[in-house]
Design a protein around this nucleic acid. Structure first.
Length: 572
RNA sequence: CGGGGUGUGGCGCAGUGGCAGCGCGCAUGGUUUGGGACCAUGAGGCCGGCGGUUCAAAUCCGCCCACCCCGACCA
């Protein structure tokens, strides 16, 4: 006998909301709230109510099955971790205030785990002795805590959220590459089973650290991530990481410097227009406060600084735009700042400053600019590299076709960590030659709730959620329309038991409400298959069966309906 | 943290100094039952909090808090 997987709607703790709470914006946030699937606790913190929890568990189980299939071993690591563990790798400073930190009764500092690389490295330190112990894939599905700067979009970014995090331990780079590929394949299957199209993009590794990293992104116009992708080859990257061809090599003969008056010109656009050149013939200066010091950056005028790239190049913890006071305090003139004759301030240049000749730059004197500035003839920078944001229209770094920009939701992120954590934690093993070597790690995360929200973002219509069958909290919505003195009640009760018996997950709308109320709730809740039992069709021995995403119902005989419905569901 | 917004019954909202209201929902009774029915009668609010101004504050002033949205961060 299959365990009962039915629920009488009249007994459900949550109620549907006719209107979405006014202060919500994101569609998945609104629908999950309206459907009574989640309930807000604090900013970025939610309860999962019974229907939402069932959908959550379906996603979770798909992830679990695919991790197991890939050879992952499920475990559960502590959410509470001693701060000392984080001090061993120094990542407490990289995470900074994002980590929730508490004190126990003995004033010992603990953090609420934002991720678990340290814990796993500790495990490796204890258990991994020999190359024979490798490779290992170990994972957990557990709530993470991150005091995000700004939680948003309901389940899309919370401060407490469930994440599947798998860690690979390998003996060498080839092993890591293999583990990495296993995970890519597993992730692809997960998204497929969730009916969530996702593309893999190159990404920055951020606070997690490491050398190589990819994100899985579900492309949707409402997404929070900007993606740069090439329409003609497979290149795709997160904006933080994306590269675009900057074009325009210097061909002109270098002309002598020429200072010109540029009264009240403050922006690059105004300057270019005033001088009569494209913005790509100008130099733009931007100032940052980097760990408390002012840093001068210079980039070609048509490009924008990418702060993530800059931060990576500088290897700093805190980076923000410098304030006016800081700029003035460093002796710079905002609006006419110049790399020319600059001294005493660290300078960073985008490599685009070498592309193009005879550029217009500031004179570091209010109201003046200088023409025919050329790098490196007229100025130098301390560091030069790619610190520009790629943009649509630039050439693809692989095939030169014009790049396109799009938006997406990050639904997974994988990292080749290498050895920087294992080295610091002291997780080492003996190789075949008997030499001690640090374990090579990878880490692979999927936010379960975010995945659920992303599914709603992609699967809804104006009436509500349209869950894929694999995710829906229940497979069928049993909807009797109680007329007076009819058989509908009895027949439906019987059918309900029958459906449970054959193993269908059924939500039984046993409420005495009017048809409109019930139909609208059925649509809002997004249950894939709806069964209407009413006097109308019952008279001819039929019931109406309708897919959520289809307009027209089909009539099926009430006799043996449970089996028929099962066939429909299993066959789809 | 910077910028913007909102806090009045479960949800959506009105209420510019003088009795705290409306719609939906909820309860009871009745009539209804194929896309959010109708009538009647009810219940339900420390107007986010603290302080101030005033004879009188949801309303004016100050401080604080919470939540939402934009940015930096992230699964």
């Amino acid at each position: 006998m299959t365990p009962t997987a039915g629920l009488r709607l009249s007994q459900l703790i949550s109620k549907t909301l006719r209107q979405a709470p006014a202060d919500t914006e994101t569609i998945s946030h609104q629908l999950l709230l309206r459907a009574g699937m989640i309930f807000p606790g604090a900013a970025g913190v939610y309860s999962y109510l019974p229907l939402g929890w069932r959908a959550f568990k379906k996603v979770e189980n798909i992830i679990r099955e695919e991790m197991d299939r890939a050879g992952g071993q499920e475990a559960l690591f502590p959410g509470l971790q001693p701060l000392e563990l984080w001090q061993e790798t120094g990542r407490n400073t990289a995470f900074g205030p994002t980590m929730f930190s508490i004190e126990d009764r003995k004033d010992r500092r603990l953090v609420l785990g934002p991720t678990h690389e340290e814990v796993v490295a500790q495990l490796a330190r204890s258990y991994v002795r020999s190359y024979r112990d490798l490779p290992v894939l170990v994972y957990q599905i557990q709530n993470k805590f991150r005091d995000e700067l700004r939680p948003r979009g309901g389940l899309l970014r919370g401060r407490e959220f469930s994440m599947k995090d798998l860690y690979s331990l390998d003996a060498d780079e080839a092993g890591l590459d293999h583990s990495y590929q296993l995970m890519i394949d597993a992730y692809r299957r997960i998204y497929e089973r969730c009916h969530l199209p996702a593309v893999i993009v190159e990404a920055d590794s951020g606070a997690i650290g490491g050398k190589e990293s990819h994100e899985f992104t579900s492309l949707t116009p409402t997404g929070e991530d900007e993606i740069i992708h090439c329409p003609s080859c497979t290149y795709a990257a997160n904006l933080e990481k994306a590269q675009g061809q900057k074009g325009e090599a210097p061909t002109d003969a270098l002309l002598p410097l020429d200072e010109i008056a540029t009264p009240s010109i403050k922006t690059i656009e105004a300057l270019a227009q005033f001088v009569g050149v494209p913005t790509s013939r100008t130099l733009k200066a931007v100032f940052y406060s980097v760990d408390g010091k002012v840093v001068f950056t210079v980039i070609r005028g048509d490009l924008d600084i990418n702060e993530v790239k800059l931060k990576n190049l500088l290897k700093c913890n805190e980076l923000r735009m410098a304030t006016e006071e800081e700029v003035a305090g460093a002796g710079l003139v905002a609006g006419s700042a110049s790399p020319l004759g600059l001294k005493g301030i660290p300078t960073m240049g985008d490599d685009s400053i070498a592309l193009g000749a005879n550029l217009v730059a500031g004179a570091n004197r209010d109201g003046y600019h200088v023409k025919n500035v050329n790098y490196p003839r007229d100025f130098q920078v301390d560091t030069i590299g790619d610190i520009a944001s790629a943009a649509a229209g630039q050439g693809c770094p692989r095939c030169s076709a014009p790049l396109q920009a799009g938006r997406g939701i990050e639904v997974g992120h994988i990292f080749k960590l290498g050895t920087f954590i294992s080295q610091k934690i002291g997780a080492a093993f003996l190789d075949q030659e008997g030499a001690s070597r640090p374990v090579i790690m990878g880490s692979y995360g999927i936010g379960v709730g975010r995945l659920l929200a992303a599914i709603v973002e992609l699967h809804h219509d104006d009436k509500g959620i349209t869950w894929p069958l694999s995710i829906a909290p229940y497979q069928a919505y049993l909807c009797p329309l109680y007329g007076d003195g009819s058989q509908v009640g009895e027949v439906t009760e019987e059918l309900y038991q029958e459906m449970l018996k054959v193993g269908i997950e059924v939500l039984f709308d046993d409420r005495e409400d009017s048809p409109g109320v019930k139909f609208n709730d059925a649509d809002l809740l997004g249950i894939p298959l709806r069964l209407v039992i009413s006097q109308r069709s019952l008279g001819k021995g039929n019931a109406e069966v309708k897919w959520r995403t289809e307009k027209q119902p089909q009539l099926l005989p009430i006799e043996g309906l449970a089996q028929q419905v099962k066939a429909l569901l299993w066959g789809s």
